[in-house]
Design a protein around this nucleic acid. Structure first.
Length: 259
DNA sequence: AGCGATGTTCGCCG
DNA sequence: TCGGCGAACATCGC
């Protein structure tokens, strides 16, 4: 279930459960989730200790002695830390067994997540061409990222090379709050709109983190609870419009978000 | 039982 | 060479 707020929640979960734990054994249940060979993957992590976790966009980097474990959750990734005598969670793809008789399971139902090993975080971010982290970036970072781009605001926000961490759901919310039509070209935005966009990115993501990414608990004033066919705008009560973009479904209020 | 899903990547086109 | 766009990927729940 991961966009930036969910991944930040996973980061905190890792920090509170797995930090400082020593890995006894790594079990790979489905090697298709790995970006490198199973043997290399295991060799990097076995007999090693979780040292720290950092997040960039929807990616987590877990530091070990010599390298980093990179986690990406795709659309259906999850983590579970549990006592070793408990039943293995369904759809577990990789299990990290610690010397304290607890296990961290990396779960992925639909195989869109990925686990990788990196030598250096900055290098990895550069190679993947990831843009600035949506929560940490400055206003200048955002405008630099948008330079020379001509696509629409919805596509831009979901493009991880432009801004890292925002996906389909949160981009809808951010654009709704900024009262911009999702198909507006970014090179047509005024300075004032860009400033509002920037501050709404921060506010929406921060709210999401505080709510631990549990969408069902979000305020009814948000668009998110109304991302449905036949639902209505929480501000003006106009019927929400659903449209297709990048093979995904976006939602917006045709009255609050005129082009 | 077919559709939709909180994501990324690749290949084609201009 | 770069940006934009659509299709492909895998699989489950509703």
């Amino acid at each position: 279930m991961p966009e930036l707020p969910e991944v930040e929640t996973y980061k905190r979960y890792l920090e509170s459960t797995s930090l400082g734990k020593h890995i006894n054994r790594v079990k790979v249940r489905d090697s298709r989730i790995l970006e490198l060979g199973e043997k290399d993957f295991i060799k990097n992590l076995q007999e090693n200790t979780f040292k720290s976790v950092m997040r960039h966009g929807k990616y987590l980097f877990i530091a070990f002695d010599l390298s980093y474990l990179v986690m990406h959750f795709g659309m259906t990734g999850d983590l579970e830390y549990y006592a070793i005598n408990r039943e293995e969670p369904k759809y577990s793809k990789v299990l990290f067994e610690f010397t304290n008789n607890h296990v961290l399971s990396y779960i992925s139902i639909r195989m869109f997540g990925k686990l990788d090993i990196a030598d250096d975080v900055k290098k990895y971010i550069k190679e993947k061409k990831l843009g600035p982290d949506a929560l940490k970036m400055s206003f200048e970072d955002l405008t630099n990222s948008l330079k020379r781009r001509t696509t629409n605001i919805k596509t831009a926000l979901m493009n991880q090379e432009i801004v890292c961490g925002i996906g389909n759901i949160y981009s809808d919310e951010i654009i709704f709050r900024t009262n911009i039509n999702p198909l507006t070209k970014i090179n047509h935005l005024e300075e004032k709109q860009l400033r509002a966009l920037f501050s709404n990115i921060k506010d929406v993501l921060q709210y999401g983190i505080e709510k631990k990414g549990e969408l069902s608990t979000y305020s009814d004033k948000f668009l998110i609870p109304h991302r449905n066919r036949d639902d209505f705008c929480p501000v003006c009560h106009t019927k929400i419009k659903r449209y297709e973009i990048l093979g995904r479904h976006g939602f917006f209020c045709p009255s609050c978000q005129k082009q």
